[in-house]
Design a protein around this nucleic acid. Structure first.
Ligand code: FES
Ligand code: FES
Lengths: 156, 156
DNA sequence: TTAATTAAAGATAAATTTGTCTTTTAATAT
DNA sequence: ATATTAAAAGACAAATTTATCTTTAATTAA
């Protein structure tokens, strides 16, 4: 019925976040994971996910190792320090919480659009959330079984 | 630097919101506006904006009249009753405030993703804002000159 | 009734995002 | 050293979104 179907983040960013969290949970058990495991676990297309992994490693969010026993990991220090916003920034940029809600070339306090005041509140809440949420929190929620990275099928 | 460049709404939706507000401001002066005026005023591509107008009229958000003296308008009743959410729903659907933030097939209280609790707050604030904001409020802000629908160039 | 005007509809094209496939590079194990 | 493993890089393809162009339909004015 509607024209588009818009989510808060791009597919790439969704995969990036889910993958980072999964890798972090595995790293907490001391094991690296390959791209196959990642895409299987977070239910995402493997080659595309691999591209996203490259972005994340370039941005220092995850680390990778080639060869036998290689794969992706998040270091003990990184898992504590990495915030959700770093993942979003690396993949979707900062326009979701910086840009004007109705597409003016820039969001400005002195030349505001009609939704500026209300929109600002939402963006600030989003920014605060992204800035304060660590990979560690997210991963521990998954480790404890309280939160999930995919919807399970009947025979899984 | 980043992979994508993601905004809260699609271009189509941004144009739709800006156009609706502009048409409402003109309707408050009792005049219809053609697609040319609309796209000029909100600084958007004309043929694409025309498509968006079709969606908006089909959804009863704006009214259109063909022929001489025709164009788009928002009725006095509509401008009071139409909420921002109706425009967003018609163009971008409801996934931005209904769907899971990190792309699980559905957002569920009983099978939540790691960002669910924090994300819910943001979506709820967004939903409240969209639900409570009328076209009238937005248009009157523009009429009063406090808010703007585009960034002016030097010689405008 | 004819011409002019303006939105609707439909076809097409460009740009972007998402997804895939192949080759290369780096690391490990034998 | 050689073979094996696994990520990086690059080329390519599909899907979606954005944008344009042309034709049709409806309305008004003369
Ligand atoms: S100017 Fe539009 S959100 Fe600030
Ligand atoms: S399950 Fe992800 S936001 Fe609710």
């Amino acid at each position: 019925m509607e024209f588009n179907q818009l989510y808060m983040f791009s597919k790439a960013c969704e995969y990036g976040i889910r993958a980072s969290i999964f890798i972090a949970t595995k790293s907490s058990e001391g094991v690296r994971v390959g791209i196959k495991d990642v895409s299987k676990e977070i239910d995402s297309p493997e080659p595309f996910t691999a591209k996203i992994m490259q972005i994340l490693t370039k941005n220092g969010i995850i680390a990778s190792a080639k060869g036998v026993g290689g794969g992706f990991e998040v270091s003990k220090e990184a898992v504590k320090s990495i915030k959700l916003i770093q993942i979003v920034d690396a993949i979707d940029g900062n326009t979701i919480y910086k840009g004007c809600g109705i597409g003016l070339k820039e969001c400005s306090e002195t030349h505001p659009c009609p939704v500026h005041n209300e929109f600002k509140k939402i963006r600030e809440l989003l920014l605060t959330m992204l800035t304060n949420t660590t990979l560690e929190e997210l991963a521990s929620g998954v480790n404890s079984g309280d939160f999930h990275l995919k919807i399970l099928n009947k025979n899984e």
